[in-house]
């Protein structure tokens, strides 16, 4: 089926396809000289967020993203791409260094959400995400974010406060997984497919809502069928965005990003007598 004819539920399935290329593949195919930076310097290294320094067309950048893992062992270790607070605090460390060494930031978003676990709560999952949002909003280097698979909830947004936010054509981005949404709103997780229809979670919907700035086309049938084709498209899109942002001054980059998120939901307001 052609990409443009896919239903939202079919896109959710594609976004979750285990063969879909992710952060590790993007780093390998679009960047050179990658040096992985590990650990949050507080208590652990959370592999569900992978990041470090690399070159993008020769220029040093900080690149980071969610990682679901390819093997069973990795799936377990990375909680299928659901970060613990340590993951977000590692990201904060990398972002702070990007600011210090004036490196542009590229993030790849692909997570069902932040990990809902006992230890994650004990170590402040909410605080970790909140700090990431605050920090990312104030960076004075260019930040380009790409939702590449599942953009689930605050766990996704914590890497998503960019000057430019792109989505792959079949990626999805939503306040919660469709299953979670159906279970909260209708007390019935089996109505997930129906939820996909009303949530406005596709790239086209989010472009229209002004949440994202651009859509990166995928090969017909999904990114996993012809990854090299996707890498070329993604490379071109990132180059375009970084080149445009390189023209802006550091304060203009921070101010522009603030303004972009300040406006979110503007058209969702109404005035009336209380």
């Amino acid at each position: 089926m052609a990409n443009r004819d896919l239903t939202p539920a079919q896109r959710v399935a594609l976004a979750r396809n285990p063969d879909r290329p992710g952060t590790a593949e993007f780093i390998q195919n679009l960047f050179t000289d990658f040096f992985e930076q590990r650990g949050d310097r507080l208590c652990a290294d959370d592999g569900s967020i992978c990041g470090g320094i690399a070159r993008f067309h020769g220029r040093p950048v900080t690149v980071l993203g969610h990682r679901k893992g390819r093997t069973l062992e990795e799936h377990v270790a990375f909680h299928f791409g659901m970060p613990a607070p340590e993951g977000y605090r590692k990201a904060q460390r990398l972002l702070t260094q990007a600011e210090k060494f004036r490196r542009p930031v590229i993030t790849f978003i692909d997570t069902p959400g932040a990990y809902p676990g006992l230890e994650a709560e004990a170590r402040g999952q909410g605080e970790a995400i909140a700090r990431s949002l605050a920090l990312m909003s104030s960076l004075t280097v260019p930040v380009v974010c790409v939702v590449t698979g599942e953009g689930g909830s605050g766990g996704a947004l914590a890497l998503g406060v960019g000057n430019r936010v792109l989505m792959l054509e079949n990626a999805v981005y939503s306040v919660l997984s469709p299953e979670g949404f159906a279970s909260i709103l209708w007390k019935d997780a089996s109505r997930a497919e129906e939820a996909c229809g009303v949530m406005k979670l596709t790239a086209a919907d989010l472009l229209e809502l002004g949440i994202i700035d651009g859509v990166v086309p995928e090969p017909e049938g999904g990114a996993h069928l012809a990854p090299q084709v996707l890498y070329r498209e993604l490379d071109a899109a990132l180059t375009r965005e970084l080149d445009a942002l390189a023209k802006l001054s550091p304060p203009a980059l921070a101010a522009g990003r603030y303004k972009k998120f300040r406006k979110m939901g503007e058209h969702a307001l109404r005035k009336e007598r209380p």
Partner: peptide, 9 residues
Amino acid sequence: GILSLMQMA
């Protein structure tokens, strides 16, 4: 939906 999420940022 997503507009709720964006209020966090």
